[in-house]
Design a protein around this nucleic acid. Structure first.
Lengths: 143, 143
DNA sequence: CCATTTTACTTGCTTTTTGCAAGCGATAGA
DNA sequence: TCTATCGCTTGCAAAAAGCAAGTAAAATGG
């Protein structure tokens, strides 16, 4: 039998932080969302090609779960029927501040960070503007 | 042989978001940090008593890892030698914005959220003030 | 129009992590 | 001293992750 997405178990609590963790509390899901929201990736292959090298079965399962959770939607690609574009929903886009805070924390606390200083400067100068720019894909300093 | 904390494997990438995920990218660690940073919990027993009911072996392992990662420190308790107080480091406290963004997202996207509206109002009115208040434990609206 | 490539997966298998229940050593309190 | 409490550890079953290989459908090249 092929890989099914399991019916979600009852939430461990009604804490809003826990609500998020039950959706993206693992080592991979937020990397997919990072690629989608901050890098503009859309296809299976693009997600697969990230530096962290996610396995195809895990990517596949995470995309299915994200869709079930209402964070992403599939879009058929007219020009190429093999491709599927995964697009973020509004709820997904609302996670951008979480990703930005994580990126800021990582950048300022990893002594060997690979993130550009421009990101830190941009964040510290005007966080709201950075958020807006990332939301538009204007990308004044990418992670 | 008793439970050892494993030597960390090389990071999957130098992405700052991935840096964070390698430390707290699971279903439990951020709940512990939530309890420490937003609820003021300090002892093993207090963490164990949260609504999500973390298993003692997992709590134990996570506390050890958090210490190794430099996010928490043990403090002996003079009044009771059985107890250990786990205290956040500066790096840990710097994660508060991540937790607050997650809490805001969860509160606004879980239709059955148990979080108080006062939190949303407080966040939307003045996020910086909320952050400051939480950092001081003044707690104008807890998660 | 046929062979090759590309895309988005699935399958099978091993290893690692989680989850659960029980137990344990040291200290504290009655 | 006897019992309770605290911070774990142990053992084991179940679930999830990781790896390599394979596959169907559509596209591309000759």
């Amino acid at each position: 039998m092929y890989e099914m997405v399991k019916t979600p178990n009852p939430p461990r609590s009604r804490c809003p932080i826990n609500f998020g963790l039950e959706i993206f509390g693992d080592k991979w899901t937020l990397l997919i969302l990072r690629d989608m929201l901050m890098v503009g990736k859309k296809t299976f292959k693009e997600f697969q090609a990230s530096d962290e090298r996610i396995a195809s079965n895990i990517l596949s399962e995470r995309l299915a779960r994200l869709e079930q959770s209402g964070l992403i939607q599939q879009q058929a690609v007219k020009a190429d029927a093999r491709q599927i574009h995964y697009a973020p929903t509004d709820a997904c886009r609302a996670l951008l501040p979480v990703l930005v805070e994580m990126a800021y924390w990582g950048t300022t606390h990893d002594p060997k960070t690979g993130a550009p200083k421009s990101f830190v400067r941009s964040y510290e100068r005007d966080r709201d503007r950075l958020l807006l720019a990332l939301a538009q894909g204007t990308d004044p300093a990418k992670s």
